[in-house]
């Protein structure tokens, strides 16, 4: 079956040009000085030094990480019960609810994020609902709360879908065995269901953390112009101040952080002590 083997070469060349080369350019720019042309590269670590020596940038990095971690935690805390309820329902309602969760993810993220602007205003829908209960009004727009809410809204479907997949793959007989052996519902959840669904939680965490840490339009739309996360710094470097070398270095730092966190997540996943006993 060799006839179609050659069909891979055009795509291999395309990926080398359109995927690999741009990545190499980021590396090259990150480690060189501004103003170089093709003949005279001056290698330097200055771009990285500038980032790590500036308290402003370190603050931005810290804030981005905190917001991404908080978003991820909120997504697990709310996503797990939702996935659990969906997965424990009858087949027909499962299909329906998975479609309900998936449908919004197909709609433009910017549009869905912008939708919250009216809801979160000082005289917006949420504050009017609060007023019915005699609380508020709260100032929500352009706060960390709004940014985290926007991120959770956009990214929690990934978490729900991942957890749901691993819950519905679970072998039902394990639970019967647990209850036959005298476990009550809480025990069988904690010792059977939860450990078995952990791979889903972990891949959900990766799928939420990655876009959360690199997001730049959610902070811009819901946090306002003053609200700067690392994605916004990269945007500014490339589209406003035009310092590509520094911008490349920052995105490299971000990529390394993401890779390290993905590696750690995967390590937990393959470590039997941490993820319960899976065969």
């Amino acid at each position: 079956m060799r006839q179609f083997r050659n069909m891979i070469y055009p795509y291999a060349v395309w990926t080398a040009i359109m995927i690999v080369l741009p990545m190499l350019m980021i590396l090259l720019y990150a480690f060189t000085k501004a103003g170089n042309d093709v003949t005279t590269f001056r290698f330097t670590l200055e771009n990285f030094a500038r980032f790590f020596q500036d308290a402003v940038f370190l603050d931005v990095l810290k804030r981005s990480l905190v917001i991404a971690v908080v978003t991820t935690i909120v997504c697990v805390l709310f996503g797990y019960p939702i996935a659990y309820v969906i997965a424990s329902g009858p087949e027909k309602s499962r299909v329906f609810w998975i479609l309900m969760i998936t449908l919004p993810t197909w709609i433009n993220m910017l549009v869905r994020t912008y939708a919250w602007v009216g809801i979160l205003q000082d005289d917006g829908l949420l504050n009017r609902v609060f007023a019915l209960f005699g609380i508020g009004p709260f100032h929500m727009m352009y706060t960390t709360f709004a940014v985290v809410l926007g991120m959770v809204y956009n990214f929690i479907p990934f978490m729900i879908l991942q957890i749901h997949t691993s819950l519905s793959k679970m072998d039902k007989s394990y639970l019967e065995a647990a209850s036959d052996l005298g476990a009550n519902r809480v025990q069988s959840f904690l010792r059977v269901t939860l450990p078995l669904s952990l791979p889903g939680v972990l891949s959900g965490i990766t799928l939420v953390f990655l876009p959360a840490v690199s997001s730049f339009f959610i902070p811009k739309l819901l946090g306002g112009g003053q609200y700067v996360l690392i994605g916004n710094v990269i945007e500014t470097q490339f589209l406003t101040s035009g310092d590509w070398n520094f911008g490349s270095a920052i995105s490299l730092i971000m990529a390394v952080i993401i890779m390290v966190s993905m590696y750690l997540t995967r390590k937990v996943d393959t470590d039997p002590a941490a993820s319960g006993r899976r065969e």
Binding site: I8, A16, I19, P22, I26, E235
Partner: peptide
């Protein structure tokens, strides 16, 4: 293996990284 790995890059990478790579390219 090589092509599959490279193929996964744009999916795994944060979009903003892919974006600035293409911009400079």
């Amino acid at each position: 293996n090589v092509v599959e790995q490279v193929n996964n890059l744009p999916i795994m990478n944060p979009e903003i990284v892919t974006a600035i790579g293409l911009l400079m390219f």
